[in-house]
């Protein structure tokens, strides 16, 4: 499993919400929910309010409720999420 994961970092202006590895991320993109797996092509998208679901390689999922506008970038197995606000 180890080579199937990638790193993800989630930031808001207030703090770094999350940093770790994941095998899949489901994000509320502007065109609808999108899934990201290992070796995803470079991508940049705007986010709309919704649930950001991060699953790690032991199968645990964490859900972040993103509020307001946001950004998601995938680049070389590194996902960066910039959200205006995330409810915890």
């Amino acid at each position: 499993m180890a080579n199937k994961d990638f790193s993800i970092e989630i930031f808001t202006p207030k703090k770094r919400i999350f940093s770790g590895s994941a095998v899949s991320v489901i994000a509320p993109g502007a065109l609808g929910y999108l899934g990201i797996l290992h070796n995803h092509a470079p991508l940049m998208t705007t986010l709309v309010p919704g649930n950001l679901i991060v699953r790690n390689d032991s199968g645990e999922t964490t859900i972040f409720k993103s509020q307001g506008e946001g950004f998601l970038e995938v680049f070389h197995n590194k996902v960066t999420v910039l959200a205006e606000k995330i409810a915890e």
């Binding site: 202006p13 993109g29 065109l31 470079p42 991508l43 940049m44 705007t46 506008e69 950004f71 910039l82």
Partner: peptide, 27 residues
């Protein structure tokens, strides 16, 4: 130098990117 997928389209990404950028600068 890679190909970058941009969703929904480059104009709205640019718009939001710059708007967040200016907000971040001022903040």
């Amino acid at each position: 130098s890679e190909k970058l997928i941009v969703e929904p389209d480059s104009a709205s990404v640019a718009d939001q990117l710059l708007r967040q950028f200016v907000r971040a600068q001022f903040a």
